[in-house]
Write a protein that binds this DNA or RNA. Structure first.
Lengths: 224, 224
DNA sequence: GACAAGACGAAACAATTGTTTTAAGCTTGC
DNA sequence: GCAAGCTTAAAACAATTGTTTCGTCTTGTC
Protein backbone atom coordinates (compact mmCIF):
# COMPACT_ATOMS: atom_id res chain seq x y z
CA UNK A 1 0.00 0.00 0.00
CA UNK A 2 2.45 2.59 1.17
CA UNK A 3 5.95 1.26 0.71
CA UNK A 4 7.70 0.73 -2.56
CA UNK A 5 8.03 -2.99 -1.86
CA UNK A 6 4.34 -3.08 -2.68
CA UNK A 7 5.52 -3.63 -6.22
CA UNK A 8 5.54 -7.37 -5.60
CA UNK A 9 3.04 -7.69 -2.79
CA UNK A 10 0.25 -9.42 -4.64
CA UNK A 11 2.80 -11.30 -6.69
CA UNK A 12 4.20 -12.75 -3.48
CA UNK A 13 0.74 -13.51 -2.10
CA UNK A 14 -0.12 -15.22 -5.36
CA UNK A 15 2.97 -17.39 -5.12
CA UNK A 16 2.17 -18.45 -1.59
CA UNK A 17 -1.47 -19.17 -2.34
CA UNK A 18 -0.52 -21.03 -5.51
CA UNK A 19 1.92 -23.20 -3.58
CA UNK A 20 -0.89 -24.10 -1.20
CA UNK A 21 -3.48 -24.88 -3.84
CA UNK A 22 -1.14 -26.76 -6.18
CA UNK A 23 0.08 -28.83 -3.25
CA UNK A 24 -3.48 -29.73 -2.29
CA UNK A 25 -4.96 -30.44 -5.70
CA UNK A 26 -2.16 -30.87 -8.23
CA UNK A 27 -1.65 -28.77 -11.32
CA UNK A 28 -4.70 -29.66 -13.36
CA UNK A 29 -7.26 -29.76 -10.58
CA UNK A 30 -6.07 -26.48 -9.09
CA UNK A 31 -7.99 -23.46 -10.33
CA UNK A 32 -6.76 -19.94 -10.84
CA UNK A 33 -9.86 -18.56 -9.18
CA UNK A 34 -9.21 -20.53 -6.02
CA UNK A 35 -5.63 -19.33 -5.93
CA UNK A 36 -6.66 -15.70 -6.40
CA UNK A 37 -9.38 -16.03 -3.81
CA UNK A 38 -6.87 -17.16 -1.18
CA UNK A 39 -4.43 -14.47 -2.28
CA UNK A 40 -7.13 -11.81 -2.15
CA UNK A 41 -6.40 -10.89 -5.74
CA UNK A 42 -8.29 -10.62 -8.98
CA UNK A 43 -8.21 -13.43 -11.49
CA UNK A 44 -6.45 -11.15 -13.96
CA UNK A 45 -3.53 -10.78 -11.55
CA UNK A 46 -2.16 -14.15 -12.59
CA UNK A 47 -2.01 -13.09 -16.20
CA UNK A 48 -0.47 -9.75 -15.29
CA UNK A 49 2.28 -11.08 -13.03
CA UNK A 50 3.04 -14.45 -14.58
CA UNK A 51 1.41 -14.69 -17.99
CA UNK A 52 -0.59 -17.86 -17.51
CA UNK A 53 -1.25 -20.77 -15.19
CA UNK A 54 1.71 -22.86 -16.26
CA UNK A 55 4.23 -20.06 -15.77
CA UNK A 56 2.78 -19.39 -12.33
CA UNK A 57 3.35 -23.06 -11.61
CA UNK A 58 6.97 -23.03 -12.72
CA UNK A 59 7.62 -19.72 -10.94
CA UNK A 60 6.90 -21.51 -7.67
CA UNK A 61 9.88 -23.74 -8.17
CA UNK A 62 12.15 -20.81 -8.97
CA UNK A 63 11.36 -19.11 -5.69
CA UNK A 64 11.07 -22.08 -3.39
CA UNK A 65 13.97 -24.18 -4.61
CA UNK A 66 16.46 -21.74 -3.16
CA UNK A 67 14.53 -21.77 0.12
CA UNK A 68 14.48 -25.54 0.17
CA UNK A 69 18.19 -25.79 -0.56
CA UNK A 70 19.04 -23.35 2.18
CA UNK A 71 16.91 -25.07 4.76
CA UNK A 72 18.06 -28.56 3.93
CA UNK A 73 20.02 -29.94 6.80
CA UNK A 74 23.62 -30.15 5.74
CA UNK A 75 24.71 -33.67 5.05
CA UNK A 76 27.39 -35.08 7.29
CA UNK A 77 30.95 -35.14 6.03
CA UNK A 78 31.88 -38.14 3.87
CA UNK A 79 34.35 -39.28 6.50
CA UNK A 80 31.71 -39.54 9.19
CA UNK A 81 30.54 -43.07 10.03
CA UNK A 82 28.11 -44.19 7.31
CA UNK A 83 25.61 -45.30 9.96
CA UNK A 84 25.49 -41.75 11.32
CA UNK A 85 25.27 -40.31 7.82
CA UNK A 86 22.34 -42.59 7.09
CA UNK A 87 20.51 -41.50 10.22
CA UNK A 88 21.09 -37.88 9.26
CA UNK A 89 19.83 -38.48 5.74
CA UNK A 90 16.65 -40.22 6.86
CA UNK A 91 15.93 -37.48 9.36
CA UNK A 92 16.45 -34.75 6.76
CA UNK A 93 14.10 -36.41 4.27
CA UNK A 94 11.40 -36.93 6.89
CA UNK A 95 11.70 -33.28 7.86
CA UNK A 96 11.53 -32.08 4.28
CA UNK A 97 8.32 -33.95 3.64
CA UNK A 98 6.53 -33.76 6.98
CA UNK A 99 7.94 -31.07 9.22
CA UNK A 100 5.33 -28.38 8.85
CA UNK A 101 5.91 -25.23 10.83
CA UNK A 102 6.66 -21.62 10.03
CA UNK A 103 8.57 -21.02 6.83
CA UNK A 104 9.27 -24.71 6.42
CA UNK A 105 5.64 -25.09 5.48
CA UNK A 106 6.32 -23.95 1.95
CA UNK A 107 9.05 -26.55 1.65
CA UNK A 108 6.64 -29.21 2.78
CA UNK A 109 4.10 -27.94 0.27
CA UNK A 110 6.72 -27.96 -2.47
CA UNK A 111 7.53 -31.53 -1.58
CA UNK A 112 3.84 -32.30 -1.81
CA UNK A 113 3.75 -30.75 -5.28
CA UNK A 114 6.50 -32.85 -6.77
CA UNK A 115 5.47 -35.96 -4.89
CA UNK A 116 2.05 -35.54 -6.47
CA UNK A 117 3.54 -34.71 -9.85
CA UNK A 118 5.48 -37.97 -9.83
CA UNK A 119 2.21 -39.68 -10.64
CA UNK A 120 1.32 -37.38 -13.54
CA UNK A 121 4.61 -35.77 -14.53
CA UNK A 122 5.03 -32.57 -16.48
CA UNK A 123 8.26 -31.01 -17.70
CA UNK A 124 8.68 -29.45 -14.27
CA UNK A 125 9.62 -32.85 -12.87
CA UNK A 126 12.67 -32.91 -15.13
CA UNK A 127 13.93 -29.81 -13.36
CA UNK A 128 13.17 -31.29 -9.95
CA UNK A 129 15.11 -34.40 -10.86
CA UNK A 130 18.08 -32.54 -12.27
CA UNK A 131 18.28 -29.63 -9.83
CA UNK A 132 17.22 -31.27 -6.62
CA UNK A 133 16.96 -35.03 -6.61
CA UNK A 134 20.21 -36.00 -8.26
CA UNK A 135 22.33 -34.54 -5.49
CA UNK A 136 20.25 -36.26 -2.83
CA UNK A 137 20.52 -39.55 -4.66
CA UNK A 138 24.30 -39.28 -4.99
CA UNK A 139 24.58 -38.62 -1.26
CA UNK A 140 22.48 -41.63 -0.40
CA UNK A 141 24.33 -43.83 -2.87
CA UNK A 142 27.58 -42.83 -1.22
CA UNK A 143 26.26 -43.77 2.19
CA UNK A 144 24.76 -47.07 1.12
CA UNK A 145 27.84 -47.86 -0.94
CA UNK A 146 30.02 -47.39 2.13
CA UNK A 147 27.76 -49.66 4.17
CA UNK A 148 27.78 -52.29 1.44
CA UNK A 149 31.45 -51.82 0.63
CA UNK A 150 30.55 -51.45 -3.02
CA UNK A 151 30.81 -48.91 -5.80
CA UNK A 152 28.24 -46.17 -5.40
CA UNK A 153 26.59 -46.82 -8.75
CA UNK A 154 26.14 -50.58 -8.57
CA UNK A 155 22.69 -52.01 -8.96
CA UNK A 156 22.73 -53.35 -5.44
CA UNK A 157 23.41 -49.89 -4.05
CA UNK A 158 20.59 -48.33 -6.07
CA UNK A 159 18.15 -51.03 -4.99
CA UNK A 160 19.05 -50.63 -1.33
CA UNK A 161 18.75 -46.85 -1.59
CA UNK A 162 15.30 -47.34 -3.09
CA UNK A 163 14.39 -49.51 -0.11
CA UNK A 164 15.41 -46.73 2.26
CA UNK A 165 13.59 -43.93 0.44
CA UNK A 166 10.55 -46.08 -0.18
CA UNK A 167 10.02 -46.59 3.53
CA UNK A 168 9.94 -42.83 4.03
CA UNK A 169 7.79 -41.84 1.05
CA UNK A 170 5.29 -44.51 2.07
CA UNK A 171 4.13 -42.35 4.95
CA UNK A 172 3.32 -39.60 2.50
CA UNK A 173 1.79 -41.51 -0.40
CA UNK A 174 -0.16 -43.97 1.72
CA UNK A 175 -1.22 -41.60 4.48
CA UNK A 176 -4.89 -41.80 3.52
CA UNK A 177 -4.80 -45.59 3.71
CA UNK A 178 -2.83 -45.65 6.95
CA UNK A 179 -5.29 -43.36 8.68
CA UNK A 180 -8.15 -45.58 7.55
CA UNK A 181 -6.54 -48.82 8.70
CA UNK A 182 -5.32 -47.30 11.98
CA UNK A 183 -7.58 -44.37 12.82
CA UNK A 184 -6.42 -44.51 16.41
CA UNK A 185 -2.71 -43.97 15.81
CA UNK A 186 -1.22 -40.47 15.97
CA UNK A 187 -0.37 -38.75 12.67
CA UNK A 188 3.08 -39.03 11.18
CA UNK A 189 4.03 -35.49 12.19
CA UNK A 190 3.86 -36.46 15.84
CA UNK A 191 6.11 -39.49 15.60
CA UNK A 192 8.80 -38.38 13.20
CA UNK A 193 11.65 -39.06 15.62
CA UNK A 194 10.31 -42.51 16.36
CA UNK A 195 9.89 -43.28 12.66
CA UNK A 196 13.36 -42.00 11.82
CA UNK A 197 14.83 -44.45 14.30
CA UNK A 198 12.71 -47.30 13.02
CA UNK A 199 13.59 -46.71 9.35
CA UNK A 200 17.22 -46.34 10.37
CA UNK A 201 17.42 -49.65 12.20
CA UNK A 202 15.35 -51.46 9.61
CA UNK A 203 17.53 -50.15 6.80
CA UNK A 204 20.77 -51.00 8.59
CA UNK A 205 19.54 -54.53 9.07
CA UNK A 206 18.38 -54.77 5.48
CA UNK A 207 21.67 -53.50 4.09
CA UNK A 208 23.59 -55.84 6.33
CA UNK A 209 21.55 -58.75 5.08
CA UNK A 210 22.02 -57.80 1.44
CA UNK A 211 25.76 -57.42 1.98
CA UNK A 212 26.17 -60.82 3.55
CA UNK A 213 24.12 -62.31 0.75
CA UNK A 214 26.37 -60.67 -1.83
CA UNK A 215 29.49 -61.98 -0.16
CA UNK A 216 28.46 -65.58 0.33
CA UNK A 217 26.54 -65.58 -2.91
CA UNK A 218 22.98 -66.61 -2.32
CA UNK A 219 22.30 -68.05 1.07
CA UNK A 220 19.05 -66.66 2.41
CA UNK A 221 20.63 -66.94 5.84
CA UNK A 222 17.29 -66.63 7.61
CA UNK A 223 15.09 -69.15 5.91
CA UNK A 224 15.09 -72.34 7.89
CA UNK B 1 -25.99 -55.76 -32.59
CA UNK B 2 -27.59 -59.12 -33.17
CA UNK B 3 -27.47 -61.17 -30.02
CA UNK B 4 -29.32 -60.50 -26.86
CA UNK B 5 -26.11 -60.12 -24.86
CA UNK B 6 -25.86 -56.80 -26.65
CA UNK B 7 -27.93 -55.51 -23.80
CA UNK B 8 -24.77 -54.72 -21.85
CA UNK B 9 -22.23 -54.44 -24.61
CA UNK B 10 -21.59 -50.72 -24.47
CA UNK B 11 -21.95 -50.82 -20.73
CA UNK B 12 -19.07 -53.27 -20.56
CA UNK B 13 -17.00 -51.24 -23.02
CA UNK B 14 -17.67 -48.14 -20.97
CA UNK B 15 -16.47 -49.88 -17.83
CA UNK B 16 -13.25 -51.00 -19.48
CA UNK B 17 -12.55 -47.61 -21.03
CA UNK B 18 -13.38 -45.86 -17.78
CA UNK B 19 -10.95 -48.08 -15.88
CA UNK B 20 -8.24 -47.10 -18.34
CA UNK B 21 -8.90 -43.38 -18.27
CA UNK B 22 -9.42 -43.13 -14.53
CA UNK B 23 -6.21 -45.07 -13.97
CA UNK B 24 -4.28 -42.68 -16.21
CA UNK B 25 -5.69 -39.37 -15.07
CA UNK B 26 -7.49 -39.82 -11.78
CA UNK B 27 -11.16 -39.10 -11.15
CA UNK B 28 -11.26 -35.35 -11.61
CA UNK B 29 -8.93 -35.05 -14.57
CA UNK B 30 -10.62 -37.87 -16.43
CA UNK B 31 -13.36 -36.71 -18.82
CA UNK B 32 -16.50 -38.50 -19.84
CA UNK B 33 -15.89 -37.59 -23.45
CA UNK B 34 -12.50 -39.29 -23.45
CA UNK B 35 -14.00 -42.39 -21.87
CA UNK B 36 -16.82 -42.51 -24.41
CA UNK B 37 -14.41 -41.90 -27.27
CA UNK B 38 -12.34 -44.95 -26.28
CA UNK B 39 -15.48 -46.99 -25.72
CA UNK B 40 -16.91 -45.92 -29.07
CA UNK B 41 -20.01 -44.66 -27.36
CA UNK B 42 -21.95 -41.45 -27.15
CA UNK B 43 -21.51 -39.14 -24.19
CA UNK B 44 -25.09 -39.75 -23.21
CA UNK B 45 -24.34 -43.43 -22.74
CA UNK B 46 -22.75 -42.74 -19.35
CA UNK B 47 -25.89 -41.08 -18.11
CA UNK B 48 -28.02 -43.82 -19.53
CA UNK B 49 -26.10 -46.76 -18.08
CA UNK B 50 -24.75 -45.34 -14.85
CA UNK B 51 -26.45 -42.05 -14.09
CA UNK B 52 -23.44 -39.81 -13.76
CA UNK B 53 -19.67 -39.74 -13.65
CA UNK B 54 -19.33 -40.63 -9.99
CA UNK B 55 -21.55 -43.69 -10.22
CA UNK B 56 -19.58 -44.85 -13.24
CA UNK B 57 -16.48 -44.50 -11.08
CA UNK B 58 -17.87 -46.54 -8.23
CA UNK B 59 -19.30 -49.12 -10.61
CA UNK B 60 -15.74 -49.93 -11.65
CA UNK B 61 -14.93 -51.11 -8.17
CA UNK B 62 -18.04 -53.28 -8.00
CA UNK B 63 -17.05 -55.18 -11.12
CA UNK B 64 -13.30 -55.35 -10.74
CA UNK B 65 -13.03 -56.09 -7.04
CA UNK B 66 -14.34 -59.57 -7.57
CA UNK B 67 -11.89 -60.06 -10.41
CA UNK B 68 -9.04 -58.83 -8.28
CA UNK B 69 -9.99 -61.06 -5.38
CA UNK B 70 -10.21 -64.10 -7.62
CA UNK B 71 -6.89 -63.49 -9.28
CA UNK B 72 -5.02 -62.68 -6.09
CA UNK B 73 -2.46 -65.34 -5.44
CA UNK B 74 -3.60 -67.36 -2.49
CA UNK B 75 -1.65 -66.61 0.62
CA UNK B 76 0.36 -69.45 2.05
CA UNK B 77 -1.03 -71.35 5.00
CA UNK B 78 -0.36 -69.79 8.42
CA UNK B 79 1.75 -72.80 9.40
CA UNK B 80 4.15 -72.30 6.50
CA UNK B 81 7.53 -70.77 7.39
CA UNK B 82 7.03 -67.03 7.85
CA UNK B 83 9.99 -66.35 5.55
CA UNK B 84 8.28 -68.20 2.72
CA UNK B 85 4.98 -66.49 3.49
CA UNK B 86 6.72 -63.12 3.28
CA UNK B 87 8.23 -63.95 -0.10
CA UNK B 88 4.85 -65.00 -1.34
CA UNK B 89 3.24 -61.81 -0.06
CA UNK B 90 5.84 -59.54 -1.65
CA UNK B 91 5.53 -61.36 -4.95
CA UNK B 92 1.74 -61.11 -4.90
CA UNK B 93 1.79 -57.37 -4.22
CA UNK B 94 4.33 -56.71 -6.95
CA UNK B 95 2.20 -58.69 -9.37
CA UNK B 96 -0.98 -56.90 -8.40
CA UNK B 97 0.58 -53.52 -9.07
CA UNK B 98 2.92 -54.19 -11.97
CA UNK B 99 2.09 -57.42 -13.74
CA UNK B 100 0.30 -56.15 -16.79
CA UNK B 101 -0.88 -58.75 -19.25
CA UNK B 102 -4.18 -60.03 -20.50
CA UNK B 103 -7.02 -59.81 -18.04
CA UNK B 104 -4.68 -58.86 -15.23
CA UNK B 105 -4.38 -55.48 -16.88
CA UNK B 106 -7.61 -54.33 -15.34
CA UNK B 107 -6.35 -55.33 -11.91
CA UNK B 108 -3.22 -53.31 -12.48
CA UNK B 109 -5.35 -50.39 -13.61
CA UNK B 110 -7.55 -50.73 -10.56
CA UNK B 111 -4.46 -50.68 -8.40
CA UNK B 112 -3.38 -47.55 -10.22
CA UNK B 113 -6.74 -45.96 -9.46
CA UNK B 114 -6.63 -46.45 -5.73
CA UNK B 115 -2.91 -45.77 -5.51
CA UNK B 116 -3.62 -42.44 -7.18
CA UNK B 117 -6.68 -41.84 -5.05
CA UNK B 118 -4.62 -42.23 -1.89
CA UNK B 119 -3.27 -38.74 -2.61
CA UNK B 120 -6.70 -37.17 -3.08
CA UNK B 121 -9.11 -39.57 -1.40
CA UNK B 122 -12.84 -39.79 -2.03
CA UNK B 123 -15.35 -41.98 -0.25
CA UNK B 124 -14.37 -44.82 -2.59
CA UNK B 125 -11.12 -45.21 -0.70
CA UNK B 126 -13.08 -46.13 2.41
CA UNK B 127 -14.46 -49.11 0.54
CA UNK B 128 -11.02 -50.05 -0.77
CA UNK B 129 -9.64 -49.95 2.75
CA UNK B 130 -12.47 -51.94 4.28
CA UNK B 131 -13.10 -54.47 1.49
CA UNK B 132 -9.62 -55.05 0.19
CA UNK B 133 -6.77 -53.60 2.20
CA UNK B 134 -7.67 -54.74 5.66
CA UNK B 135 -7.37 -58.41 4.82
CA UNK B 136 -3.99 -57.87 3.18
CA UNK B 137 -2.79 -55.92 6.17
CA UNK B 138 -3.86 -58.62 8.60
CA UNK B 139 -2.00 -61.24 6.55
CA UNK B 140 1.17 -59.18 6.53
CA UNK B 141 0.87 -58.40 10.23
CA UNK B 142 0.62 -62.10 10.93
CA UNK B 143 3.74 -62.81 8.92
CA UNK B 144 5.77 -59.98 10.42
CA UNK B 145 4.49 -60.80 13.88
CA UNK B 146 5.72 -64.38 13.50
CA UNK B 147 9.12 -63.16 12.34
CA UNK B 148 9.31 -60.72 15.23
CA UNK B 149 7.81 -63.13 17.72
CA UNK B 150 5.36 -60.43 18.74
CA UNK B 151 1.64 -59.85 18.80
CA UNK B 152 0.31 -59.05 15.34
CA UNK B 153 -1.09 -55.67 16.35
CA UNK B 154 1.91 -54.24 18.15
CA UNK B 155 3.34 -50.95 16.95
CA UNK B 156 6.59 -52.62 16.01
CA UNK B 157 4.78 -55.05 13.74
CA UNK B 158 2.83 -52.28 12.04
CA UNK B 159 5.98 -50.22 11.49
CA UNK B 160 7.87 -53.16 10.01
CA UNK B 161 4.94 -54.01 7.77
CA UNK B 162 4.97 -50.40 6.56
CA UNK B 163 8.65 -50.76 5.75
CA UNK B 164 7.93 -53.81 3.63
CA UNK B 165 5.00 -52.32 1.73
CA UNK B 166 6.75 -48.97 1.33
CA UNK B 167 9.60 -50.57 -0.55
CA UNK B 168 7.14 -52.04 -3.05
CA UNK B 169 4.88 -49.03 -3.52
CA UNK B 170 7.95 -46.89 -4.08
CA UNK B 171 8.42 -48.42 -7.51
CA UNK B 172 4.93 -47.30 -8.43
CA UNK B 173 4.76 -43.84 -6.87
CA UNK B 174 8.30 -42.82 -7.74
CA UNK B 175 8.50 -44.42 -11.16
CA UNK B 176 8.69 -41.07 -12.94
CA UNK B 177 11.60 -39.98 -10.77
CA UNK B 178 13.39 -43.32 -11.07
CA UNK B 179 13.25 -43.25 -14.85
CA UNK B 180 14.68 -39.72 -14.83
CA UNK B 181 17.52 -40.55 -12.48
CA UNK B 182 18.31 -43.85 -14.20
CA UNK B 183 17.07 -43.61 -17.79
CA UNK B 184 19.29 -46.54 -18.74
CA UNK B 185 17.84 -49.12 -16.38
CA UNK B 186 15.07 -51.45 -17.51
CA UNK B 187 11.53 -50.71 -16.32
CA UNK B 188 10.14 -52.33 -13.22
CA UNK B 189 7.98 -54.77 -15.16
CA UNK B 190 11.09 -56.46 -16.53
CA UNK B 191 12.79 -57.04 -13.22
CA UNK B 192 9.94 -57.98 -10.93
CA UNK B 193 11.49 -61.30 -9.88
CA UNK B 194 14.76 -59.59 -9.10
CA UNK B 195 13.03 -56.88 -7.08
CA UNK B 196 10.93 -59.39 -5.19
CA UNK B 197 14.08 -61.13 -4.05
CA UNK B 198 15.75 -57.88 -3.10
CA UNK B 199 12.81 -56.60 -1.07
CA UNK B 200 12.53 -60.00 0.55
CA UNK B 201 16.16 -60.16 1.69
CA UNK B 202 16.20 -56.50 2.70
CA UNK B 203 13.03 -56.93 4.74
CA UNK B 204 14.21 -60.10 6.42
CA UNK B 205 17.37 -58.31 7.47
CA UNK B 206 15.44 -55.26 8.64
CA UNK B 207 13.01 -57.31 10.68
CA UNK B 208 15.86 -59.31 12.19
CA UNK B 209 17.59 -56.10 13.18
CA UNK B 210 14.45 -54.63 14.74
CA UNK B 211 13.85 -57.85 16.66
CA UNK B 212 17.34 -57.96 18.11
CA UNK B 213 17.01 -54.31 19.05
CA UNK B 214 13.74 -55.01 20.80
CA UNK B 215 15.22 -57.87 22.79
CA UNK B 216 18.43 -56.22 23.94
CA UNK B 217 16.72 -52.88 24.28
CA UNK B 218 18.52 -50.28 22.26
CA UNK B 219 21.84 -51.31 20.94
CA UNK B 220 22.29 -50.10 17.38
CA UNK B 221 24.44 -53.19 16.85
CA UNK B 222 25.90 -51.86 13.65
CA UNK B 223 27.09 -48.41 14.57
CA UNK B 224 30.80 -48.46 15.22
C1' DG C 1 -47.06 -55.01 -40.27
C1' DA C 2 -47.94 -52.41 -35.68
C1' DC C 3 -46.46 -51.47 -31.43
C1' DA C 4 -43.87 -51.03 -27.00
C1' DA C 5 -39.49 -51.05 -24.79
C1' DG C 6 -34.77 -50.79 -24.55
C1' DA C 7 -30.58 -48.66 -26.47
C1' DC C 8 -28.31 -45.17 -28.84
C1' DG C 9 -26.79 -40.67 -31.04
C1' DA C 10 -26.96 -35.59 -32.12
C1' DA C 11 -27.55 -31.45 -30.13
C1' DA C 12 -28.00 -28.28 -26.66
C1' DC C 13 -27.78 -26.84 -21.56
C1' DA C 14 -25.72 -24.72 -17.55
C1' DA C 15 -21.59 -24.38 -15.06
C1' DT C 16 -16.73 -23.86 -14.78
C1' DT C 17 -12.34 -23.26 -16.68
C1' DG C 18 -8.11 -20.32 -18.41
C1' DT C 19 -7.56 -16.19 -20.70
C1' DT C 20 -8.18 -11.50 -22.38
C1' DT C 21 -9.94 -6.89 -22.80
C1' DT C 22 -11.09 -2.60 -20.98
C1' DA C 23 -11.11 0.84 -17.78
C1' DA C 24 -10.25 2.59 -13.31
C1' DG C 25 -7.07 3.34 -9.32
C1' DC C 26 -2.69 4.36 -7.41
C1' DT C 27 2.13 5.92 -7.04
C1' DT C 28 5.87 8.56 -8.75
C1' DG C 29 8.37 12.32 -10.73
C1' DC C 30 8.09 16.82 -12.54
C1' DG D 1 -1.47 19.85 -9.93
C1' DC D 2 -0.83 16.56 -13.36
C1' DA D 3 0.66 13.49 -16.73
C1' DA D 4 3.05 8.74 -17.10
C1' DG D 5 3.45 4.27 -15.75
C1' DC D 6 2.64 0.48 -12.94
C1' DT D 7 -1.05 -2.14 -10.71
C1' DT D 8 -5.66 -3.69 -9.95
C1' DA D 9 -10.65 -4.75 -10.71
C1' DA D 10 -14.82 -5.89 -13.44
C1' DA D 11 -16.57 -7.97 -17.18
C1' DA D 12 -16.62 -10.69 -20.98
C1' DC D 13 -14.42 -14.35 -24.07
C1' DA D 14 -13.79 -18.93 -25.94
C1' DA D 15 -13.19 -23.55 -24.69
C1' DT D 16 -14.29 -27.50 -21.99
C1' DT D 17 -16.79 -29.83 -18.55
C1' DG D 18 -20.86 -32.91 -16.75
C1' DT D 19 -25.48 -33.30 -17.71
C1' DT D 20 -29.88 -33.48 -20.09
C1' DT D 21 -33.35 -33.51 -23.71
C1' DC D 22 -35.35 -35.39 -27.58
C1' DG D 23 -35.72 -37.98 -31.54
C1' DT D 24 -34.26 -42.31 -33.94
C1' DC D 25 -33.05 -46.93 -34.35
C1' DT D 26 -33.25 -51.73 -33.28
C1' DT D 27 -35.47 -55.68 -31.16
C1' DG D 28 -38.98 -58.71 -29.61
C1' DT D 29 -44.07 -59.69 -29.40
C1' DC D 30 -48.65 -59.73 -31.02
Amino acid sequence: MLDASNQSDTRERLLRAATEVFAEHGFEAATIREICRRAGANVAAVHYHFGDKKRLYTAIFDTVFALLRARRTAFLAPDAPPEARLHNYISALFDEIFYCDGDARRCTQLSAIYLTEMLHPTEVLDRVAADHMRRDAEELYGIVGALLDEKADSETVVDCAASVVGQILYYYHAEAMISRLHPDRPPVQERIDELVDHVWHFSLGGIKQVRSRRQANDEPALIE
